[in-house]
Design a protein around this nucleic acid. Structure first.
Length: 842
RNA sequence: GCCGGUGUGGUGGAACUGGCAGACGCGCCGGACUCAAAAUCCGGUGAGGGCAACCUCGUGGGGGUUCGACUCCCCCCACCGGCACCA
């Protein structure tokens, strides 16, 4: 064993060994006997290089995977690439590299980085979503959904840059302008494909409460996103017409306060009643959170509750996509309606008064519940009761019904982009939209296309691709040229992992064994979309009869962001850490401004390069610090000093074993026989580390416990000679072995190396997680805390397990306590769990 | 605006279901080693007071429940996150 710890050398050595013994060293096979554990981290977009967020994410997952293996689970721990997406296409436009090449080169580099981190993946299941053998299943799912009516086509608006004549993603629209040419982005209506996630909305909502292994925050975000609300649909007849307007309201109790009706600009009756030019003006303001604009149609509607005649407006703020596209406006009890009424000089009528009898505040709407006023037979009722009664009244008149509405919309998956899965649809002049037959899948994304960044999508101009024949009638036809949202790729990739590359995808037996994912780890930024789409997809998969599992992810861990202090030079702007050493700008020597700690980002330059980190300190240190500095769900503040501290810990372990090698070797294979503080500490440490990992993966405290054990070890002085010497050495060896086992999921390389160095024959990754003896972990003497009136007065050592009465007696007998109590009346004495006594005096 | 979360030393963070606040790490201070420095090792380190043993205060602020509150309840403040004309 070398005196010096050289992480680069030993890490490469072990990575080679792990890779060499066949590609299957961390691979999993379906087993009849072993329980499975599916550990998954969110797969990365191959942007070029991994960043510290990946390091943290994958370090967390790897500890879990390695720990569970040691606990005897058949662990499935796969990795792959979320390989379709916009950046590849942008690189093609900017640098002329083909997206495929760009993507594959990035994957190759990033895979090396992941291997270099010592992550224990089953690479036999590696996938890249941009490969036809993967995306053909996107297409297959699409067709199945089409057959079931879950995939459908309808017109909808997209962001359109008139100057580039191209469609823009939301994130490419910056303050209403095109990110590339700065022209104003407009809304253009296109026919697009949608997936009917709303068919599952109630199930997704109901089942959200069963996600016990998820952070409550994420569950809540999903519930809010689905946004269920119960209310009343009420029908307002239009005066002098056969038409009627149906509105949705959650506040049936305010029905008597309705002063006017507002239609969404896209409402069919808006079209019918409003003057086209004026309507077009209103439509310009639709969907924008600016001022409210309205247009009187000249028509009136009849309130079904009291027969009142109220005007009908068209208003820009009324959404066509929610409810019925029409609302009853109650300016007294809805702030938006109030603002609208103010602007157009419309009347306000109070229908609900505060319960306490206080005055309604001026100048705004009173939106709370209260007591009904001026509401015919319902006057005097409380809001909650009135809502039910009025709804029943309207229903009884056949003028409406109780309704549930959801905020959730169907999932638009069409993207006018090249680098994605082609939507497998063919448009025939005679037959219309025809799905590509299953036998013709995959529809291959052609590689020979031009990237201009303007005009139609490259795919639309690829004649060879577009022109085809109708699978139904054999006539001339054109292919759909839109591609799928990349969230489609990530909605089921965890299912693909259940089968190896050489096995058929979606194999039922594999799914039965491996699904659901037992532990999913990733960033909270996917709390809604990715995770909700996946839950939706899993239900579709269930309904296709491929799996019985509705929920894809049993447990979810959302790790916090990796943050770092920002530094700025007054002249040169944001600085990289290396440009701000010693607090001065490397370019001009001026002292830098220290900004706030923020999420690492290239734009702020507050980043640490994982390559550099690993080169300087090694993967074990990088992993250890990422896990030690904060609990996983918290944000982590990067600190170079902290990294050095993590390395120092590894160095101490190394040095200790190196310096005690002879002693450790002398007692190889021997077990300790007696009891001692060191043995107790060892058992306590195993207990703490196990508990901390099991209980919400608190790796930071688990590592702290290991540090304590190492501190105890380095302070341990074995007897110089005699039988005590042998026993002490046996205890020392015992502690060292257990400590290495505990350390191995966190710092696998150095653990392997030291395990080998102390003469253990097999790789440490094949060892079992150490057990502990609760008896042996128990302190023989405990420190009894003695309080007077809740304040600590003194502490004494007492044997473990004394009865409460004895503790009280001993506490009262202490001279210090006698002094404190002297002249006062003892009212009560509490003894708590054999470790604390509180004496209450007056 | 609505919903949710967080607030503990100089600092990152500990504290199991109401029972010793500050584990572990970083930083800082002192010491050893060294010609010297770095590295390493040892010791100290919440604030205030006292020669001392000890005492007082202290978990964003204010109140409450309790023998006892970082932990439970009410009000307020600050910061972070999600949603945002969803009727």
């Amino acid at each position: 064993m070398k005196k010096r710890y050289e992480p680069g050398e030993i890490e490469l050595k072990w990575q080679e060994i792990w890779a060499q013994k066949g590609k299957n060293i961390f691979s999993s096979r379906v087993s009849k006997t072993a329980p499975k554990f599916y550990c998954l981290e969110m797969f990365p977009y191959p942007s070029g290089k991994i960043h510290m967020g990946h390091v943290r994410n994958y370090a967390i997952g790897d500890v879990i995977a390695r720990y569970k293996r040691m606990r005897g689970y058949n662990v499935l721990h796969p990795m792959g690439w979320d390989a379709f997406g916009l950046p590849a296409e942008n690189a093609a436009i900017k640098e002329g590299v083909h997206p495929a090449r760009w993507t594959h080169e990035n994957i190759a580099y990033m895979k090396k980085q992941l291997v270099r981190l010592g992550l224990s993946y089953d690479w036999s299941r590696e996938l890249a979503t941009c490969l036809p053998e993967y995306y053909r299943w996107n297409q297959w799912f699409f067709i199945k959904m089409y057959e079931k009516g879950i995939a459908y086509r309808k017109a909808s608006f997209v962001n359109w840059c008139p100057s580039c004549s191209t469609v823009l993603a939301n994130e490419q629209v910056i303050e209403g302008k095109c990110w590339r040419c700065d022209s104003t982005v407009i809304q253009k209506e296109l026919e697009q494909w949608f997936l009917r996630i709303t068919a599952y909305q109630q199930e997704l909502l109901d089942a959200a409460d069963s996600l016990a292994g998820w952070p409550q925050k994420v569950v809540l975000m999903q519930k809010n996103w689905i946004g269920r609300s119960e209310g009343l649909e009420a029908m307002f007849r239009v005066e002098g017409s056969d038409e009627s307007i149906v509105v949705f309201t959650t506040r049936a109790d305010t029905l008597f306060g309705a002063r006017f009706i507002c239609l969404a600009p896209a409402h069919p009756l808006a079209e019918k009643f409003a003057e086209p030019g004026a309507l077009a003006k209103i439509r310009e303001h639709y969907g924008k959170v600016d001022e409210k604009h309205g247009l009187f149609t000249g028509r009136y509607a009849i309130n079904p509750a009291n027969g009142e005649k109220i005007p009908i407006y068209v208003a820009n703020f009324v959404l066509m996509e929610y409810g019925t596209g029409a609302i009853m406006s109650v300016p007294a009890h809805d702030q938006r309606d109030f603002e609208f009424a103010q602007k157009y000089g419309l009347p306000v009528k109070v229908a609900v008064k505060p319960e306490g009898g206080e005055e309604i505040p001026e100048g705004k709407a009173f939106e709370e519940d209260g007591i009904l006023a001026d509401s015919g037979p319902f006057t005097g009722l409380k809001s909650a009761e009135a809502r039910a009664k009025i709804a029943g009244f309207i229903e009884g008149k056949g003028m409406g019904r109780r309704m549930v509405n959801y905020r959730l919309r169907d999932w638009g998956i069409s993207r006018q982009r090249y680098w994605g899965t082609p939507i497998p649809i063919i448009y025939c002049e005679h037959c219309g939209a025809v799905p590509v037959p299953e036998k013709d899948l995959p529809v291959i994304l052609p590689e020979d296309v031009k990237f201009t960044g303007t005009g139609a999508s490259p795919l639309a101009e690829a004649e060879n691709f577009v022109n085809t024949v109708c699978p139904s009638c054999g006539g001339k036809a054109r292919r759909e040229t839109d591609t799928m949202d990349t969230f489609m790729d990530s909605s089921w990739y965890y299912v693909r992992y259940c089968s190896r590359k050489d096995e058929p995808a979606l194999d039922k037996e594999n799914l039965r064994y491996y699904m659901p994912v037992d532990q999913y780890v990733g960033g909270v930024e996917h709390a809604v979309l990715h995770l909700l789409y996946s839950r939706f997809f899993m239900r579709v998969i269930r309904d296709l009869g491929l799996s019985e599992v509705p929920e894809p992810f049993q447990r979810l861990l959302t790790q916090g962001m990796v943050c770092m202090e920002t530094t700025r030079c007054p002249e040169h702007g944001w600085l990289y850490p290396s440009e701000a050493e010693g607090g001065v700008c490397a370019k001009c020597g001026r002292s830098v401004e220290r900004g706030r700690t923020e999420k690492m980002s290239k734009s702020k330059r507050n980043v640490v390069d994982p390559d550099h980190l690993i080169k300087t300190y090694g993967a074990d240190t990088a992993r250890l610090f990422s896990l030690f500095a904060a609990p996983p769900e918290n944000d982590l503040q990067w600190s170079e000093k902290g990294v050095e501290g993590a390395q120092r810990f590894i160095l101490r372990v190394w040095a200790f074993i190196h310096d005690n090698m002879e002693r450790l070797e002398a007692v190889k294979g021997q077990l300790p026989e007696g009891k001692s503080p060191l043995l107790r500490k060892t058992h306590q440490t195993i207990m703490r580390v196990t508990r901390d990992i099991e209980r919400e993966y608190h790796f930071n405290t688990a590592i702290a416990a290991m540090m304590e054990l190492v501190n105890t070890l380095t302070a341990f002085e074995p007897a110089e000679s005699g039988p005590e010497n042998r026993e002490d050495l046996r205890q020392m060896r015992f502690a060292v072995e257990k400590m290495l086992l505990l350390l191995s999921p966190f710092c696998p390389h150095v653990a392997e190396e030291l395990w080998e160095a102390i003469g253990m024959p097999a790789s440490i990754r094949l060892e079992s997680w150490p057990g502990y003896d609760e008896e042996a972990a128990r302190e023989e003497e405990i420190e009894l805390v003695i309080q007077v009136n809740g304040k600590v007065r003194t502490k004494i050592m007492v044997p473990h397990g004394l009865p409460d009465d004895e503790l009280k007696t001993r506490a009262m007998a202490l001279p210090r306590i006698q002094d404190a109590v002297a002249g006062r009346q003892v009212i009560n004495i509490f003894a708590v769990k054999g470790k604390l006594v509180n004496i209450v005096i007056r």
